[in-house]
Simulated scan of single mutants.
Amino acid sequence: MPLYKPSNPDIHVSAQFSLKGKNAAVTGGVRGIGLAASRALAEAGANIAASIAKEAGVTVKAYQASVDKKGEIDGVLKTIASDFGSLDIVVANAGIASHYSAEEYTEDQWRKIMDVNLDGAFWTAQSAGNIFKTQGHGNLIFTGSVSAILVNVPQKQAAYNASKAAVVHLARCLSVEWVEFARVNCISPGFIDTDMLTVHPTAWRDKWFGMVPAGRLCDPNELKGAYVFLASDASTYMTGANLVIDGGYTLP
């Protein structure tokens, strides 16, 4: 079976971006990038399994699970699919960061990052993939990071960088393995103005601004269009891609 093709690819481009009637789940969807993604999908017409303000004409329900616990995330995604009648879109977005010198990482510090950022992304993907395979269709979007393709400075975060590099390649692997029943893509943001960044020292932020050609942080809502694009029929021939949105940070 070939990669999914819409029955009418000639429809107006505005209709290609519509998610009306689709059902979506977003992990880590209550703040930051995840919240922006949840709102975007809802605004495009999708029913959302995440805790956000309700959009007119769509269903919004909140669910809770720890992505690093395989049984929990699998159970919740199955429940969502049952409650909504199907599960068309899953955004594997949940993630955490920490900053330690590589020679000083404890086993627990390293494991915590990998448990959430990599293992949690995989357990989310595995559960979604099984649902998609049964349905015969689905769309999986990972939230990666520019940290997957460069080494951030001045902060030291080998574990975070390694976890995100693994997620980007995981997306590529699954896009090939699951091509008959799902599309799999990745969005890799640069420096986004979320709680994760506001806790960092001013000296770090000044350093970043000097390295980003755009000269500013990205508002999370500036990512909304990218999530809708990948979730919609506007990108039906795109799978295995890593969409970098970073204000030019990775270019110089």
Rank of each mutant, 00 (worst) to 15 (best):
E177D: 15
K164F: 04
Y160N: 11
A214Y: 08
A171N: 13
G190W: 05
S175T: 09
G144E: 05
P189S: 10
K164S: 04
G138T: 12
M211G: 13
P220W: 05
D119I: 07
A159D: 11
K224D: 02
A159R: 01
A182C: 11
F181C: 06
I141Y: 06
A165C: 13
A182H: 11
S163C: 11
W178M: 06
L217C: 11
V168T: 15
N152S: 14
F181Y: 15
V167Y: 05
A226E: 03
L217F: 15
L140V: 13
K164T: 05
T143F: 04
L174G: 06
A128K: 02
P189E: 08
T202L: 14
G210Q: 08
T202G: 00
M196Y: 04
D195W: 05
K133S: 11
A165F: 13
S163E: 08
L217T: 15
L170A: 07
G210K: 13
Q157N: 15
P154S: 13
V179P: 02
N221R: 07
G136E: 09
N152H: 14
G210E: 03
V168L: 14
R216W: 01
V167W: 02
D193I: 00
A226S: 14
T143M: 07
Q157S: 14
G136V: 04
D119E: 07
A165N: 10
A148W: 05
L118D: 01
I192F: 07
G144C: 13
L150Y: 13
V153K: 15
N117G: 02
D219E: 14
I141L: 07
V168P: 00
Q126D: 09
N117L: 01
F122Q: 00
V228G: 03
H169A: 01
S175C: 12
F142D: 09
R205V: 14
C173E: 09
